[in-house]
Computed example of a mutant assay.
Amino acid sequence: MLTLFHAPGACSLASCIALEETGAEFEVTNVSFADGEQHKADYLRLNPKGRVPALVVEEKATESGILTETPAILYYIAQRFPDAKLAPHGNDFALAQMQSFNSFLCSTVHVAHAHKLRGARWANEQNSLDDMRAKVPENMSALFTMIEETYLGQPWVLGEQYSISDTYLYTIARWLEGDGVDITTFPHVNAHFKRMEDRPAVQRALRH
């Protein structure tokens, strides 16, 4: 059995969409950030990082435990359910390209977004926090310009093959409006976003 610990609107949506795409049975447990559930003892015993997603895997005697970090969970889902074709299995270079893109989203784009509300991770002084917050629209615009011009194939991140990279990009693109960035300034990203919203798996995931 798979159980995904998820917070609506958070990066865990990418994993939720990927699970929905597989057609596998899984459960979703919502973690309320508003109530600070991610910092409470019960959740910290599961994920000491105090963040989402966390995926509890109880599939087999040899395959059980807890996975954290979006790129790792997405890769596990793609590998665990190869029939869903969420990764370019059999093409080592394309697989590495997918992982490169997901790493970029995780280590660079997500971090740029986090400077808006999570600045206390990096600074204490209010003027520093204000500067980081003010820089978010510029940084996110620059990063999505790079995605628009360099990374995004057509119709999907990897070109013709839909993959876990698409679930991840869509999830982060959902943050652009709140970051003060108009997604329509990026025609390819905007078209990708609309294609994603038409997918039944995305619609199901958004209901969790």
Rank of each mutant, 00 (worst) to 15 (best):
T108M: 12
A78Q: 03
A94Y: 03
F93E: 15
K49M: 11
S103F: 01
P48V: 04
T70Y: 08
L67G: 05
F101P: 02
S107N: 15
A78M: 05
P48G: 04
A54M: 00
L44V: 00
D42T: 11
H89V: 00
S64P: 00
A72L: 13
D42L: 02
G90N: 13
E69P: 02
F104T: 14
I66P: 10
P71W: 09
E69F: 05
S103K: 06
G65A: 10
Y75R: 12
N47I: 03
A54L: 01
T68F: 09
N47V: 09
A72N: 15
E59H: 11
S107Q: 15
R80T: 04
E63I: 09
Y43N: 10
V57D: 10
D92Q: 12
L55R: 06
F101V: 08
D83Y: 01
E59G: 11
Q97P: 00
F93Y: 10
V52L: 11
H89W: 01
G90L: 06
F93C: 03
E59V: 07
P82Y: 09
A78C: 04
Q99I: 07
P88C: 10
Y43R: 09
Q79C: 13
K60V: 01
A87C: 02
F93M: 08
V56C: 10
G90E: 13
Y43M: 08
Q99A: 14
S107V: 10
N102S: 02
L86T: 03
V57L: 10
L86P: 03
F93P: 00
A78H: 03
T108Y: 13
R80M: 01
K60F: 02
G65K: 08
D42G: 04
L74T: 08
A54R: 03
Q97H: 01
V56W: 04
S64V: 02
S103N: 07
P53H: 04
H89Q: 05
P53Q: 05
L95C: 07
D92V: 07
Q99R: 15
C106H: 15
L86K: 03
P88R: 11
L55T: 05
F93A: 11
H89D: 07
G90W: 03
L55I: 08
